[in-house]
Design a protein around this nucleic acid. Structure first.
Lengths: 245, 245
DNA sequence: GGGGAGAGATGCCGC
DNA sequence: GCGGCATTTCTCCCC
């Protein structure tokens, strides 16, 4: 274990990315307090001083420290510890190592960013550039607008000159989406002195929950079933392979 | 690289936890589509067949596959790939390996669960058992109650027999907390035919945002500044160590 | 399984 | 830094 600990110390100083498989205990003190009893875990310390503690299963880390955390190995009569402190966020972690299975490391280069398609923003873009998806005569004049009455996905007018406020959801629209739409329209009506009858509210989403539909009808809003766009090439399920980019 | 790939294949079959440091490209197709250009990453495949792709920095994985995903190494004229498929969730990932820096592995034993204190539930428990924290004469009669008018944190009566509905927030209370409280009270008043004037709404949180405070005053509710409890022993910042549990 | 709500949510952007 | 909001949110619990 001492060789491993020496190696970890050295790697932490070099600011390498370090992976440790270990049997350990973990204490955390910050917004909450937590204690993780002795057991097998994988610890990753990244080059930006992020620390992740992963259980043998599950997607999310069971404990973590955010970027720019200080990490120090401390050996004393009670055992061998990794003590971590984030002064800015005022949180602390302490890991007691009982056994170390392996230590791996490498200096990774900063990576490129991910390109994602099919988000809510892509949906509002799609509607903005293809207004017929809502209805004939719909004229959008802004999207993703931060106004003093809130953040509106798509904003425009219909064939009869009525104001149209559209709230997009990439998946199910629930009652929260309706109250979000209602809040925008309420503030809009109040601040501009427009009669409520000249504003239409539309939820654009693939589907809507029963509760949300009820709430929507109460407010006199409309639902338009629209799927989020996927610009990237499709996975070819016959060939079981992904496509050239 | 071929040795590494052979090792990964073997380890995937043995269902070990595998850590790979690699220069790679990643495609994902599921609820969204994404493409991650060539760069350095750390890949973790867990024993429950979870796959994580981590950038050299940041807390969250940039791509992931959930539990029970199938993973297969595929070598063809286009290169060496890890192809992953989750039939249940209908999502797919493809990783093209350009270089492999290291491969590590170990068979970890399932770990114990974490113990957390300082959550919203702990807060409602604390208020339930220490009602004077709200005010003298407050008598709670339920907590964390799922009712047909919603999920109420603490429910009780005050010294004058008025009904008290308390919504707890472990951190800042924002306008959503107020509308949540309003929704409960509105439904309660409607379903029980109680006059609105005989129900008091209280937000219990360490702090409240300006917007939320305005909204709270409009509805005639009250704010009580309360911190979430932390039962576990405190981190001693002088001694820089944690304590016996 | 859907629905409602919390989370050490995280992360992004705008003011 | 706060605010408002999306997220392959995740997770839990109830109906």
């Amino acid at each position: 274990m001492n060789e491993y600990i020496g190696r970890v110390k050295e790697l932490l100083e070099k600011k390498n990315l370090v992976v440790i498989a270990t049997e350990c205990e973990v204490w955390y003190h910050g917004k909450v307090e937590s204690y993780l009893p002795q057991g097998d875990r994988v610890i990753v310390i990244k080059q930006d001083r992020v620390l992740l503690v992963h259980q043998p299963s599950g997607v999310n880390p069971i404990n973590y420290m955010k970027e720019n955390t200080e990490h120090n190995i401390v050996e004393n009569s009670e055992g061998i510890f990794l003590k971590s402190k984030n002064t800015l966020l005022k949180d602390y972690m302490e890991i007691k190592f009982h056994r170390i299975y392996f230590v791996s490391s490498f200096l990774l280069e900063d990576s490129k960013d991910i390109i994602v398609s099919g988000s809510e923003k892509d949906m509002s873009d799609m509607i903005y550039y293809n207004p017929y998806l809502i209805e004939d005569g719909f004229k959008p004049f802004s999207r993703e607008e931060h106004t003093r009455f809130g953040f509106i996905d798509v904003f425009g007018t219909d064939a009869n000159g009525k104001i149209v406020v559209i709230e997009c959801k990439r998946d199910f629209a629930d009652f929260k989406a309706i109250s979000q739409l209602h809040r925008y329209i309420h503030k809009l009506v109040k601040s501009k002195g427009i009669p409520e009858s000249s504003v239409r509210g539309i939820i654009a989403a693939p589907r809507i929950s029963d509760n949300a539909l009820m709430m929507l009808k109460e407010y006199g809003y409309e639902f338009k079933s629209i799927n989020p766009p996927k610009y990237l090439e499709k996975y070819d399920s016959n060939q079981k392979r992904l496509f050239e980019y």
